[in-house]
Write a protein that binds this DNA or RNA. Structure first.
Lengths: 193, 193
DNA sequence: TTTTTTGTTGATTGACGAGTCAATAAACTT
DNA sequence: AAGTTTATTGACTCGTCAATCAACAAAAAA
């Protein structure tokens, strides 16, 4: 039954299955067979398309970051004021697409992976740089030199909210998390210039 | 050469070796042999004192939390004002003993472990509850009803700073992290009542 | 139509690692 | 002195899993 042009479809299915499986179990200790099974194929085929399990992990990381990046870019595109730019980033960070169990669970595990795999570390570094840079563009017109420290803090707060989400019972509450980030901002903007 | 009363010494060595090894490799994928070797004994002996690898992990978690808890309690003991109480927690959180590579790396991995192992999850929950409660005692006299949200945010920020420390190059900078937490507080305290 | 390329899997290999066991020995008890 | 408890390890079992391979099938190219 081999239809041609399966490669992108299979790869996509595997990437999604990887995220699902890591998020579901909350661990990088998932077998290639588990992932392949969830993606509806044999483990041998998974190895055929991705050379190794590590490659699957990296592709899954890139996928998460791509989604996140696209959403941020989209929201940023329609932001007119500095304040709106920051708000756009906050909203995107805690949107339903990004701030969901699976994705957050996978994200945390990728952070851990970054301690072992240089490629993964680079990916996280890219995420951090972009986030900071995006925040700075919005913050500088508002607070000048203080922007640096505020961006750093807001970045850490967002990561911390992700981290905590992982262990929270019940459905994720992106709105509450976003509110927390906004409060951080409001406080810092109101503070002495 | 068996001297008696080895149990506590061996267990202690194993707990410390577990933290070192997890922190060093940045992963829970450490073998019992690795840990035992670093602790200066055979893997069989490690299994003799702790029933399983998971038990070792849990003991290591408890150890980290005990150190942290003791330091917080110590600092809290000499704090006279609400503000001093909060400052005590911040200082303890980023003290040299707690905010060091190994410990932070291990801490993150234990957070991940908590997704899989209920016992570990409970331990993290205890840590979170204590942190929040300690912060609230200091915050309530200062900001009343807003204390809840501020404590939650400060907790998330502290966790986020830990999370980011894991991937930062160079020696940990507890002073900078503490400064970030203080800025968060200052901003929120200065903000409208 | 033969050949090549693409898709697919069951079976196998090879490594690694948690946990068990038997054996040895020193100390302590009776 | 005989027996028991504690300390200790090398060797072994048993399971798991990433990665490979041989084989088969269908489409495309020659």
């Amino acid at each position: 039954m081999p239809k041609l042009g399966m490669e992108p479809i299979r790869k996509d299915a595997l990437v999604k299955a990887t995220i699902t499986e890591i998020g579901r179990t909350g661990s990088l200790d998932v077998t290639v067979s588990q992932i392949a099974k969830r993606a509806g194929m044999s483990s041998a085929l998974a190895h055929h398309y991705f050379g190794s399990k590590e490659d699957m992990f990296l592709a899954a990381m890139r996928h998460i970051m791509t989604i996140y990046g696209a959403e941020v870019r989209g929201a940023l595109g329609v932001a007119q004021t500095p304040m709106a730019r920051i708000e756009a980033i906050v909203v995107a960070s805690f949107s339903a697409a990004n701030f969901r169990r699976e994705a957050v669970g996978a994200w945390l595990n990728f952070w851990v992976l970054a301690q072992t795999v240089p490629q993964a570390k680079r990916l996280v570094a890219v995420y951090q740089r972009r986030l900071k840079s995006n925040l700075l563009v919005g913050l500088r017109p508002l607070v000048g030199a203080r922007a640096e420290a505020i961006a750093e803090g807001l970045g850490a707060l967002i990561d911390g909210l992700y981290l905590r989400e992982v262990l929270r019972p019940g459905a994720p509450d992106g709105a509450a998390a976003a509110q927390m980030a906004r409060a951080y901002l409001a406080a810092h903007l109101a503070d002495a210039p």
